[in-house]
Design a protein around this nucleic acid. Sequence first.
DNA 1: TTAGGCATGTAAGGTGTTACATGATTGC
DNA 2: GCAATCATGTAACACCTTACATGCCTAA
Lengths: 190, 190
Amino acid sequence: MSLPHILLGLLDEPASGYDLKKIFERALGHFWAAELSQIYPTLKQLERRGWLDVRTAPSEKGPSRRLYQRTDTGTQVLCEWLTDGPEVGTERLTWLAQVFLLSEIGGPGRALRFMIDLREAMAGRLAALRAVEAHWQSADPRYPDKLPDHGFYRHLTLQLGLSRMAATRDWCDDCIAQIRVRYQMPEEAA
Amino acid sequence: MSLPHILLGLLDEPASGYDLKKIFERALGHFWAAELSQIYPTLKQLERRGWLDVRTAPSEKGPSRRLYQRTDTGTQVLCEWLTDGPEVGTERLTWLAQVFLLSEIGGPGRALRFMIDLREAMAGRLAALRAVEAHWQSADPRYPDKLPDHGFYRHLTLQLGLSRMAATRDWCDDCIAQIRVRYQMPEEAA
DNA sequence: TTAGGCATGTAAGGTGTTACATGATTGC
DNA sequence: GCAATCATGTAACACCTTACATGCCTAA
């Protein structure tokens, strides 16, 4: 159970479900995805438990916005979750499972195609992350050395994301090279 | 939907649900986890669809083993899944979400404690992966340069796992150092 | 006028976890 | 005798995805 806690964590300041979805995409996209259809019911549940407060504010376009914010009880629950220590060992990297099984794809040409596509996907995600960093840098003069606490920890996760993404892209390049050598596929024949 | 495909991929050679669980722990543990209570029903489902065959073999200890193996139809389904290209963007790293929210944990002492625990967890997982590598090396004289196709791709995933795990551990060290500097916590006072 | 962004949600179904249930054998 | 390993599963619940439903406002 983590999405409720993440929402709790993000709701230090008031935000709507729709806002939260955008925060996920921008800031947490490289390690967590959440759909609106999951966010909305979860927010209601957290409100029923008394961990969030709601107020309604009119919107300029579309239906009125429901702005949620963490209560003191909510803060306590969040703090307990964090204090329980890191939750590791539940990672699920589908694309890596696919590489693991790539000998079954039906020939080195297809395996190479797969790795090239994977490399492009990683390069794209890396570019998106770099755009997030560039945007942050230009929007906040305190970036990166004088951030407040909450920015400090978020910055640490961004740094890990950037280095993991770059390392994974480089690994893809290495795999591509190894496949070409192993099956004698010169680059011009790809 | 990926677990069915992964099971299909592993069932090139006959294995029981129990065997598969151990294969998960050893070989795929760094990027996928699966419980027996999920594996057993999934295998039955795959058999009903005609993607797996079963035969029963007596066991020396405990109930008789149900040995599953991929059919030709199963191979085709697996191949289609792989040919559809890499599935990216569904990663969920709970511990990284926790770091993202670490300013709410209630003081830098606790944040430091969290990062030290995370570092230890990563170091442990890295050691486990290195043990897998060492075992493979000593058990197969073809390791690492003369492996058959199926070992070749598995080796690529192991390499990525080793480098990611080491990089993440190093990032933890870096975070720990940054927290100490930021909050003026000398190492001897930890 | 139509596509896209804003903003809310529900329903159905698939995926995954935790707890429970059974029972034999091996090693301490 | 007790715990661990072998080996199978079921049931209840929690989590997540996909598809559907509604309706306003803005810009091309």
